[in-house]
């Protein structure tokens, strides 16, 4: 068996697990999960097991991937991701996404943000297919298991390339918070353009953020931290929050402790570098 491609063995446990979960996803991904679904199912869903979702740790953001993205923000069908917030009488969403977790990984931050921001819709974006599947399965399981009190209805994930297609999803000034947690450090000099924070991409993030919206960054790589701080500080539309603000902000607390990467760093007793920035209003056009 080709170890690098376990899918070649159609009876491997991973393949069987993935097939089963895929069918489950097809059935439940876009369904409005409430007590009636729960009654039908009659049992609790197991949370997905990470070991069945392994894949390469990196994805090339410049590649021509098979991606689903709307032609424009107006074409985005949010009801499929947040069916609980869709009003079928008006055909409109009752809320818009206001928080984005770019490169959400295994979804730890989303899950902790969900109860902390019950009035916001929170979207995770992740480029790796299997990791996205994991987060989807995790959210399906959590929604099902907490159907009685409608928990976890305000979070979801999409597989996508935020570096290319963020403006296809969000209108100008739609977001109030953007998270960049433990991004791929891309150590090599010539790969720096592949980093998620660059001076050119920051202009696009500024476009989707409203005035006084916040960019949160956290990493365990000091070089990357310095790079992100340098670029954000140089950008005319961002201003760093001070340490006191960070200490009093609940998102910083969640970000430090919630994400899987954060927990891993904790276990290894590594450092965590946090920097948060405020979106300044556009200056007068010259």
């Amino acid at each position: 068996m080709d170890l690098r491609n376990p899918n070649r063995d159609p009876n491997s446990r991973r393949v069987l697990y993935r097939t089963n979960k895929e069918e489950n996803r097809k059935e439940l991904k876009h369904v409005k999960i409430d007590e009636s679904t729960l009654a039908q199912e009659g049992k609790k869903l197991d949370l997905p097991k990470k070991r069945f979702y392994r894949q390469r740790a990196h994805s090339n953001p410049f590649s021509d991937h098979q991606l689903d993205y709307p032609t424009s923000p107006d074409d985005m069908n949010w009801s499929k991701l947040f069916p609980h917030y869709y009003d079928s009488t008006t055909g409109k969403m009752t809320k818009d996404v206001t928080i984005a977790d770019i490169g959400c990984g295994f979804g730890g931050l989303l899950i902790d943000l969900s109860p902390a921001f019950p009035e916001d819709l929170i979207l995770g974006m992740e480029i790796r297919v299997q990791v996205t599947n994991y987060v989807e399965d995790r959210i399906i399981a959590l929604r099902t298991n907490h159907a009685k009190d409608y928990q976890y209805q305000n979070i979801n994930v999409i597989r996508g390339n935020a570096m290319k297609f963020l403006p296809n999803f969000f209108q100008r000034a739609q977001l109030s918070k953007m998270f960049f947690c433990f991004p791929d450090p891309h150590f090599k000099q010539r790969k720096h353009k592949a980093r998620i924070i660059t001076n050119t991409l920051l202009s696009e993030y500024a476009y989707v953020l409203k005035d006084n919206g916040v960019i949160y960054t956290i990493t365990d790589v000091e070089d990357l931290h310095n790079w992100m701080v340098k670029h954000l500080e140089e950008h005319p539309l961002f201003e760093r929050y001070d340490k006191e603000w960070e200490d009093n902000d609940k998102c910083v607390q969640i970000m430090r402790n919630a994400t899987e990467e954060g927990k891993k760093v904790e276990r290894k007793k590594g450092d965590k570098f946090v920097a948060c920035f405020r979106r300044l209003p556009n200056p007068a056009i010259v």
Partner: peptide, 24 residues
């Protein structure tokens, strides 16, 4: 190549004015 037409201010090119969406 990704269907985008982006309009930015100049020389304040860090301010994106808008995208023109429609190309597939």
């Amino acid at each position: 190549r990704d269907e985008h037409i982006k309009i930015s201010h100049f020389p304040q090119s860090y301010i994106v004015d808008k995208w023109l969406f429609g190309h597939k």
